[in-house]
């Protein structure tokens, strides 16, 4: 199975008719797959994404960079007051292209050599820049999900190697957290899994999740032990799903 077949298979899985299954964040997964594909593409390629209605978005990729992104709504979004090529591409990616992916019930991808010669002055946008931009303002700390988790908490302890290196939040909740850390913190750490290079998290809650949830988010040797509002759980989980830039 070639790279394109694998990507198509993944897209079909993410966007296919999964009536019997529960899925969300499909767009995030597709974006992640596309960024990986761009990162692995050296020679010029034109990738065409088509939805179930036949609407298309075209990505021109070369040298591990996204050189151009066109499709419905891209012209308006990508031209307004933006002279920088990367800024135009990011605007289209975050706007009409994201909407296209969100709304599609089915997505397929085709790829071929671009019909026209690539202008060598086209610099486009690197995957690194694109990834950083897609995280968005206000979520810049997603590269550090531990810090981001503390930001979402009512109270939080930042741990490194089992030692508390930072505290945030109100005193009453912090006291409860410190008490937990002393008794069950190490045990929860052993259950939550710290030995991967991807963020991991564990949540404990009561039946109604009426007051708060207890959570531990760990990444690259650091961890956040937090009490958070129940409604923050989706955002906390998203922190662990986001692609994280490589270390170093």
């Amino acid at each position: 199975m070639g790279d394109l077949d694998r990507l198509n298979s993944k897209l079909a899985k993410l966007k296919g008719k999964d009536d019997g299954q529960i899925r969300a964040s499909a767009t995030d997964s597709i974006v992640s797959a596309l960024l990986t594909e761009i990162e692995e593409t050296i020679l010029p390629r034109e990738m065409i994404l088509t939805n179930e209605s036949g609407n298309r978005f075209v990505l021109v990729v070369a040298g591990r960079r996204l050189l151009a992104l066109s499709g419905h709504g891209a012209e308006e979004e990508g031209s307004e007051g933006r002279e920088d090529a990367a800024a135009r591409i990011i605007a289209v990616f975050r706007g009409p292209f994201r909407t296209f992916l969100d709304n599609a019930r089915e997505i397929s991808i085709d790829a071929a050599r671009p019909p026209n010669r690539i202008d060598p002055t086209m610099i486009g946008c690197s995957v690194e820049t694109l990834t950083a931009a897609l995280v968005g303002p206000g979520q810049a700390s997603v590269a550090d999900p531990v810090a981001a988790a503390c930001d979402l908490a009512v109270a939080g302890l930042r741990l490194v190697g089992g030692d508390v290196v930072g505290r945030s939040g109100d005193a009453a909740h912090l006291a409860r957290l410190e008490q937990f850390a002393g008794v069950g913190g190490a045990g929860l750490g052993q259950l939550a899994g710290d030995d991967t290079d991807a963020p991991c998290c564990v949540f404990l809650s009561d039946a109604g999740r009426e007051d708060a949830i207890l959570a531990r988010i760990a990444f690259r040797g650091a961890a956040a032990l937090i009490l958070a509002p129940p409604e923050a759980r989706a955002e906390l989980i998203a922190l662990c799903r986001e692609p994280i830039p490589a270390a170093g």
């Binding site: 008794v183 045990g187 998290c201 662990c240």
Partner: peptide, 20 residues
């Protein structure tokens, strides 16, 4: 761990979710 979490949450802990 569960017992300490019940104290921290001041409620019976009946739900655990782990993402890894």
């Amino acid at each position: 761990v569960w017992a300490a979490a019940e104290v921290a949450l001041a409620a019976p802990v009946v739900e655990a979710v782990a993402l890894q």
